[in-house]
């Protein structure tokens, strides 16, 4: 065993350093890339309910997307209603 090994023994393992670094970087990453707030599925469902009151559509015809554009976000709704359903 070399002196280096003795020093390393006192330090924490490289795997636990990796885990700590990853936990930090992943939590930042998730905060920066969370272009999908929790309420989106609920909003999606409620929009579908409202539109369904007036026209026969299926769930796939409503698309809800939130896009970050610098310091603001754009909520994009795309609702396709087949002409026979109006």
């Amino acid at each position: 065993m070399s002196i280096l090994d003795l020093i390393r023994f006192k330090k924490q393992s490289s795997a636990s350093t990796a885990k700590e670094r990853l936990q930090i970087v992943v939590s930042h990453q998730r905060a920066n890339n969370s272009n999908k707030p929790d309420y989106l599925p609920q909003l999606h469902k409620e929009l579908l309910d409202v539109v369904s009151k007036y026209a026969q559509i299926d769930r796939e015809r409503i698309q809800v997307q939130l896009q970050n554009e610098g310091d603001f976000s754009v909520l994009e709704l795309n609702i396709t209603i087949p002409s026979e359903a109006i």
Partner: peptide, 12 residues
């Protein structure tokens, strides 16, 4: 102690 464990990766 040289490699992330299965549990570490799953936890992250």
């Amino acid at each position: 102690g040289e490699m992330l464990s299965i549990e570490d990766i799953q936890e992250i």
